[in-house]
Structure formats: C-alpha cells, structure tokens
Write a protein that binds this DNA or RNA. Structure first.
Lengths: 150, 150
DNA sequence: TCAAAGAGTACTAAACTGGTCCCATATCCC
DNA sequence: GGGATATGGGACCAGTTTAGTACTCTTTGA
C-alpha cells in the first residue's frame, strides 16, 4: 500500500497539536489527552521528534515541548525523515549496493525518478498546511487539555 | 521509509523480464532464472499479476506468461495496485472510517493531497520507462542464466 | 528537599512479510 | 488415452518489524 507507519501518522497529529498551542510549552500528557493517543506512545514520539530537531523540550517541572520552527517551516518530508528515516520506496533507491540483485536490476533509475517526485510532493506540504486543512482544534478539546495541564 | 514491499520490487523485475521477452510466452522458471529470484516466489508473483490483469497466462505444456498490454500501457501505479492494493500512505487516506481517531484528526485532507501527488507520479512512469531506464539485460547475465537452465 | 516532567533503555506481544510446499487443473505430445 | 509440463489456488511457517508498555534516571522549579 506504500504506506507509512502508524507512528508517523500519529507524529503528525502530535506536531499539529503543538502547533495549535502556539509557542507555549505543552506537556506530553496534554498532547496525549488532546490527540487521544496513549501517553507512553506520545512520549516516545516527542522524544524522537526532539531528537530530529523538529521539537524543542524543556525538562523539569513546568517543562514541556514546543515546535522548534514555525509550522510553515516544517514539511511532511521532515516528519517522514524524522520518524522513518530517509524516504526510499525501494531498497536500492536509498543506498547503492543495498540491493543484492543490483547487477541484475534494470529498473533502478526509474524508481529514483518516482522517488524524487514523491519527495517533492512531501516537501511541498507543510505542517501549517496540514493543520489548516481542517478546522482548528475544537474548543472543547482545547479546554479539556488545558484543564488537565492546569 | 515510506517503502513498498520487496515483493512489489520483485514484481517489477518480473514484469520487466516478460517485457524483454516480447510477446512470446515465458515460463515462471525462466523468469526465476533470469531475475535470480526464487521460483516459488516468482510463481506467486505471476499469479498475483495475472489476477490483476497485467499478465496473461497459458496453462498446460508449452504454457507460460506474457504481458497483457504493451509495456508503455502498464504504469508503476498499476503494479503497486496489483501487488499492494490501492496506494494509501495513511490508514485514513484509503477509506473513511478506517481511522478511529477520525473525529480528532485534522490532517486528513492534506495527506490526501500528498497521496494524489504520489499517485500522479506513479502513473507517469510506465514499464517501458522502467526497462528502458538502463541497458537491456547484459549478455553476461543472460549467458549465466542460460547456462543454469541447461 | 520534593514533586513534576522529560530522557533513556529494555522488553513483550502482535502483525506483517517473505518464502515454501502441496495438490488440483489444464494442455500438449507421444 | 496417458504421461509430462505448466499454471491455479490454497495453506503454512519462520523471521522481521511494529506498536505499545514499563521502569529507572536526570533535570528543574517551587
């Protein structure tokens, strides 16, 4: 299905949630509440995203997470790279020699073209696009998130 | 990594092999020889491709497989569809309701856009492009394949 | 000094993938 | 008509990957 992993999908939701909270810090629990994802899962995702530099973290009490850049500077490609590694639809499109059939493989170059097209598509969509694609976070969800974090 | 399965990759090789043999019938064993893939695996792939209508089969002695259409009428999207089902990078981009977070998910529409871009890219590349992307099967490989089958 | 919150690591259960095997069916050749 | 050659269609198994959880450590603010 040429699908990305569920974690990546979740990661997008998490980032969208951080974007919705603007520049303020958000705890992982608050994100979990708002997104309906498991707290440990959200925590794991936020760690990965922090590692990738998409998110900044503040440790200690009153700590939390926030986007490292503005939403329009975070592309879908960034998210994919952070959570799944470099985009590569075939084994041989990522690194030469990774494919043990390489000497018999005559289709590599065209896949590279497709890969490039996909990457371009992914880079053309930013987190700002993602979150503006639908209505902003419903007030009810926001309120619940705030209540929890208070 | 947004990767497609290895089977799909192999399937492309198999189709390229059939294309190389023109309109004549090719047995699954011959394809396995030429592509260096396991015979059962090739057999399985050919069955799937036949089911999808990309390949036609002739049963019985002197039977075999051949492309159902000319290589320039078989797109990468066709191959993906045949071997992995409809392209859909996220669970919710394939079918509404498949995502149990749908009511909280605010990023669906943008993924659809990305999905469409990817599909367009896949449809723009045909099997003819794939196989012409590099040189035809090297003589050395062909010779080795023939030696094996002798 | 204590509590809140992130950092890091290890582990487990489930799902998927890749690969193989077996037997049924169809066709050609003798 | 019978044997050989091929595909058709399942079922099956092992390895890998993924998703999710748990636990402990470190940092920081009150």
């Amino acid at each position: 299905m040429l699908r990305m992993s569920k974690l990546t999908d979740y990661g997008t939701l998490v980032l969208a949630q951080l974007a919705a909270n603007g520049t303020g810090l958000t705890t992982s629990s608050a994100v979990a509440e708002a997104t309906r994802l498991g707290q440990p899962t959200v925590s794991k995702l936020l760690k990965l995203l922090t590692h990738a530099g998409l998110v900044v973290s503040v440790r200690g009490a009153q700590g939390g997470y926030a986007l490292a850049r503005s939403p329009d500077q975070i592309t879908a490609a960034d998210i994919l790279d952070a959570l799944e590694g470099p985009v590569a639809i075939t084994a041989c499109s990522s690194a030469s020699g990774a494919c043990d059939l390489e000497s018999h493989c005559r289709v590599g170059a065209a896949w590279q073209r497709i890969n490039l097209s996909i990457r371009t598509a992914l880079e053309s969509v930013t987190l700002a696009d993602l979150k503006s694609a639908e209505d902003p976070l419903p007030a009810a969800v926001l309120a619940r998130a705030l209540k929890k974090s208070a």
